[in-house]
Design a protein around this nucleic acid. Structure first.
Lengths: 209, 209, 209, 209
DNA sequence: TATGAATGAGATTTCATTCAT
DNA sequence: GATGAATGAAATCTCATTCAT
């Protein structure tokens, strides 16, 4: 999370800044980050391009802001079920749901980060960091399950990576790309339930079985 | 797969065409598709940019070629274990391995297709088609397993989508992005084994359990 | 000297005005006039850019102020040794010294005027006017020397122009540009002495010699 | 002399390159280097701006080319009278004339270099180097004169710097700026004669006198 | 078949200046 | 008197693609 940005002192300035972020979100969702021109964002915000530069150094700088917020909130929301005191097994579906919802709510930000990471090494690094946080958390859960006798012999780190991929890419496909099937409107409950079933059975098994 | 391309009659022409494809692969792997300029590809091929247009209508057309081959071979390789007559359960790890290997071998093509699909609706559609083939195949396997009593109540389509995401994105992360952990060199056997364990347990379970 | 400027009535206003001039001087010395942005000057002055326009119509207007002062003082200082009643030959080194000192003291103003005259015809005219004053004075001195039998046949106007160039450009090179030699710190006395020797021998000679 | 440039392989390419240089010269002379826009140069050359970039990386790169040529030729032309075997005293006016002519002939280049050195440290360094070559040569001449008993006690380096300033700035004022007097058309012979008289008497004197 | 040359169409960025408060 | 916000108007540079040879 590197690029810098300027904090406005007045309410009007903050409002304008916000309007650029909102406009950017709409444009990212509509055209994608890479196809979004600064002029589109400015137009969508009802401001001039020059005004944009009073608040952000560049399109990348704006996205960095969005990404930082995205990351911070994601960490908090996913951790919440576990910190609330639920048993790991019960917290899991809640965490999956939190991830799914966050992805859907902040979809433009995801689109931005994913696309930017395709062309900009800085963003690739940022996005990787965000992802790694999730993988680490998952691997801890797997290790804990293994101490209880589940999934003997499974590589916790690699399995966490794979499960993270499943969750992340499933959300990408269905929320950002329109899904794998035409004419199917995906229900949140159904998606979360399916992911949870796969996930839990992928971990909570024993050799005996 | 829409863009057209020209087939050369002479041996020299075919060689030049091939040299552009090879050069493009090297450049895509090094710089990514979106950052690759036609001039880079021509330089890498030791040809002029104008010559490129004797063989391909555009950068996209070249990529379409790569993508078509990628898809055709992928389908064949992944289907092979099943068609060889192995039991579904035994064919699975072989199919996973085939996918993993194909991904690694044709990495530049994957990079190209994935990146192009970010900015070009045509490629997004192509990539989606490739993906859908895989998902459909997986879902058939799940349905078959369910007829044998496994995974009751699991949505075959959605589960297939999720497992496909796991496989696909895991390969992307570890083969194209350098993986989730620094200083870890991933062994093919280990990767395939982990994916297979997760996958098989995610499907081969019963309520009783 | 054309651009207009506003005279403040209050003490606070005059102080602010002064602070902009001082800031501009520092910035001109550091970055040059052409590279100096109004925002730099305002920042250096600890004021807003908008405030600048309460005192000056433009960057050029500010510079015009500096240039006017520069010129007025220069004329006075250079004329002083002659008006003090010294013999022309004795007044000369004093005048050279006065010029040299003024140049050094008001270096930022010189940098500003010289640079502005490169892109702005108005300043080119101003700077030329300042220069012409000097040349005229010098030519008068030469004519007087010629009445005493020195430098017969020398074109007073052209010689004055050349000597003025020597003085002016020498000062520019050594005071604004860092000099012709690395690792040499120029002493005022030495510079003045050298210039005076060249100048006086260039004028005070006879054919007989 | 740092910026790079591309050498064309065909005659047409070289002609285009030349036409850009010629156009740039005309524009520099008319508008000055700093006020010259790439679009002006391209228009003057009857080419597109994009074409410009096939031959030069930037306006600076083009100027670097001009400056390199300017410098090379200047060194050769000024040195020629001395190398021809003339006595130093007789070679001097020839060298002054060569300098004056080169300045006049290559005026656009001079305008470019002088102006660029105002805003670009790289050019400042280049221009300084060109100047230093001249100063060094002059100082050698002074030292030689001093061995013959002339100008005892004069600092050769500093005097050379001052005389170089006289020559250089005189040419600048009269050739690039229109001169110090209105309604005077300067004759080359007259200018060279005046400069030579000043220069020679400034050096060839003895204390006795 | 090959290629050097040429260009149209953009996209980003800078900065002096104006305006409302 | 002071300032944050807003902008018009440039100017530079990139790159896929076309064309003449």
């Amino acid at each position: 999370m590197r690029y810098t940005c300027v904090m406005s002192k007045t309410a009007k300035g903050r409002a304008t800044r916000q309007s650029f972020q909102d406009a950017a979100r709409r444009v990212f969702e509509r055209d994608g980050y890479l196809n979004a021109r600064l002029s589109d964002i400015a137009e969508e915000a009802g401001k001039s391009m020059a005004s944009f530069y009073n608040y952000f150094d560049s399109k990348e700088a704006l996205l960095t802001d969005l990404a930082t917020d995205f990351d911070t909130e994601l960490q908090a929301k996913v951790a919440e079920p576990f910190e609330r005191g639920l048993a790991p097994h019960d917290a899991l579906p809640e965490a999956i749901r939190a991830f799914y919802r966050h992805y859907r709510t902040r979809l433009p930000d995801v689109v931005g980060i994913v696309q930017a990471s395709m062309v900009d090494p800085k963003f690739a690094a940022d996005w990787r960091e965000i992802r790694t946080n999730g993988v680490r958390t998952i691997s801890i859960g797997i290790r804990r399950a293994q101490r209880d006798g589940w999934a003997p012999g499974l590589d916790p780190m690699l399995a966490a990576s794979a499960l993270s991929s499943m969750l992340e890419h499933f959300c990408w496909v269905w929320l950002a790309q329109g899904g794998d099937a035409i004419d199917v409107e995906l229900e949140e409950d159904h998606a979360v339930d399916t992911l949870w079933k796969l996930w839990s059975h992928a971990i909570y098994w024993t050799e005996a079985e």
